[in-house]
Amino acid sequence: MTDRAPQSSADNLLPAGDPVPLPIAAVEKPRNQWLDVWDQFKTHKGAVFGLGFLIFITLFVTIGPWLWQVDPGKLDIRNKDVRPLYMALFDSDAKVSWANPMGTDNLGRDIMANIMQGGRISLAVGWTAMILAVFLGTLIGVLAGYFRRLDGLLMRFTDLVLSLPLLPLLLVMMLLFRDPLRAAFGPENGIFILIVVGIGITSWMQTARIVRGDVMALKEREFVLAARSIGTPPRRMITRHILPNVLSPIMVSATLGLATAIITESALSFLGLGFPSDFPTWGKILFDSVDRMTAFPERVLWPGLAISLTVLAVNYIGDGLRDALDPRIRGL
């Protein structure tokens, strides 16, 4: 033991000594800054768990159907109302089956296959609509905050959209554009585009307002004046000085936006104006199961868990990313 102790302390010293040559090497060849961002990101436990879960759920819905080759739409009346496997622990009479580990619904469709298929749609809608909304919100916010001439016009337009009742607006949009889009892009793609655009253009306003306020404050900072004295034109001023400094609020509204998009899609599906009825999404599975929730709580539990855990994971990732992208927190 005694002669081992110096050995282990030397071992401990080595990895600590290793990074020392790095900064010297950085003078010649710069170290990739994304490595620093990753190092900081790793220190945020919640963000790492969130990222792990997001990768898991993404693989679950993309690779899953290849491994679990059950048709989510296949009716099997004989095997209807199968309970999930864990029910066997509480109730020896429960109808469980290894063929349907999460159980089946009242028409005998396999819930796990439905969750996988529904997750594909929900995640695709959530991410695309969120990216669209954040893009629109940032664009309008930056333009309104930076160019004083556009401010009044763009912000009154934002107020106008904010004051519209969103759900009726979405319903009208669905009624008006569903058929032409279906004809142009096919039933599934047409609806997908309609829902994504619908959610995207009705949820950018909060982002725009927050970004505008931050840009207006940043514009008066001295480093912007310094860049102006160098002769930096407005577009590079925005990309180089303004946008990196409003990243935090954008990140926060992006993570919240993903959650809102998934939930709005569920609401639309619930009202029968989303995807066709044989087309599962997390939101629709959830709402379809609400009326028999007391008898079969698992049918609400699975999609509900998937939605809330995804949203939570993305929130944590956003939190960790925001810290990791801030050099002051990164401690460099």
């Binding site: 800054q33 900072r221 001295e222 480093f223 004046l225 310094a226 860049a227 004295s229 160098i230 002769g231 034109p233 180089r240 000085h241 990196p244 400094n245 990243l247 801030d326 050099p327 002051r328």
Partner: peptide, 26 residues
Amino acid sequence: TALREMRPTMQMVFQDPQASLNPRMT
């Protein structure tokens, strides 16, 4: 816009060294 090419001749050092450097840039 036309001043841009004149900018290299004339430069400025600012009062508050904290505020005049972009915190997100190396």
